[in-house]
Amino acid sequence: MTVSKKEGLPTRRRVVAVCGLLLLAAVTPALATALALEDAQAILERIDELSTFGEGDFASVVTIITEDPGHGVTRQVVQMFRRDREGTFLMLVQAPSTMRGQGYLRVDENLWFYDPESRRFSRTSTKEQFSQTDARNSDFETSSYAQDYRVTAVSEDRLGRHDVYILDLEATSREVTYAGGRLWVAKEPSLPLKVENYSETGRLMRTSLFPSYTNIQGTYIASTMIFVDELVQGQKTRIDLTEISVDPIPDNVFTRAYVERVSR
């Protein structure tokens, strides 16, 4: 097909223009993604910022219900105290009676487990399971997405009634609990609604859902968390936070002596 000079551009110029447009079309999303990756990293920082209590303390009663195909349904009640400015936290098991008095104390970079039966503290890791549930000890710590992960891809979608960013994450070191992840973050405010955790071998290990948040003086705390073990069929844990308080917590609460005393 030929085009007259009067009707339009000469053929050679048209080919160049089309190629230019095609090139622009190819380059534009790449440029857009590059920008989005930077923005996405900022989203991780924003998530951490929104869920961290700067100067204040935080306390709550945590109810953990675990569905285990091998052991049925178990319910635990835990008293949680957090002081994010010092990176400390304390979890004291209140129920069931067989576990009452067990405690997890994070202080000076060490995570201690207290066993009231032997009356001894032993070092443990944030990467270990919390009290035989699908939650990890790190799930109760201060959020550290920006430090632990870098964003490798970003897209937009809807999750339920929320507009979300979907961020593909890669661990920054082998010391991070999961090697990779996919994070569904609400656009405003930047709060994670769903997280998929992947192993280094690329297998989906756990899906976490955060259907509800509580806003306390500008800091958002997931008041309901659901952890689904994707490796063990039928295994999941639901965690509900109630009796949330931001009143100052006495300094002596974050000490081994306190844990020993209240666990008697």
Partner: peptide
Amino acid sequence: VLVRLTGVAGQLNVGE
């Protein structure tokens, strides 16, 4: 079968 384990540096992993 799947095996869930902790790597030397502490990262969780799963092998088939």
